[in-house]
């Protein structure tokens, strides 16, 4: 039971520490959707963004390599659902100016009411979506 919560807690602390270091060293918010979109849309002063994203992908690889933990199983839902989900996520994070990291981890850290409203909203619709998929439609993943 302890281990079950220890890894999420340690991971969360590491994510929080990363956000604090990015603010302290680079002066930026660790909002992944904002960083990713600015990087691909060719914003000015972009080198730090591409290196952050490189680290984001490499960090996961590094963790699995060092710890010897196997990669998680793929989501059994097919790629069409994945593509639909990605499209909705992409539209949503642009309109809402942030995702779990920008509004959740960082916005709540700034005690921002705007980010609290965003976080409460996406948590709620996430829960509703899973409820509908699993308990109303009975299928889903």
């Amino acid at each position: 039971m302890v281990n079950q919560f220890l890894a999420p807690l340690a991971g969360g602390l590491l994510i929080g520490l990363s956000a604090v270091m990015l603010l302290l060293l680079v002066g930026r918010i660790a909002g992944i959707s904002g960083i990713a979109w600015s990087a691909v849309s060719g914003a000015a002063d972009n080198a730090w963004r591409w290196l952050f994203l490189l680290g984001l992908i490499g960090g996961g690889a590094l963790y699995h390599w060092i710890s010897g933990t196997p990669a998680p199983a793929p989501n059994p839902a097919g790629w069409p659902l994945a593509a639909a989900a990605g499209l909705v996520v992409g539209i949503g994070v642009r309109l809402g100016n942030g995702c779990t990291s920008g509004h959740g981890v960082c916005g709540l850290g700034f005690h921002s009411l705007r980010s609290l409203a965003a976080t409460a909203t996406f948590m709620t619709t996430g829960i509703i979506t899973v409820f509908i998929l699993r308990h109303v439609l009975g299928g889903g993943s």
Partner: peptide, 9 residues
């Protein structure tokens, strides 16, 4: 919308 997509996949 973002939460909906998150819950989908």
């Amino acid at each position: 919308l973002f939460g909906t997509g998150w819950g989908l996949y």
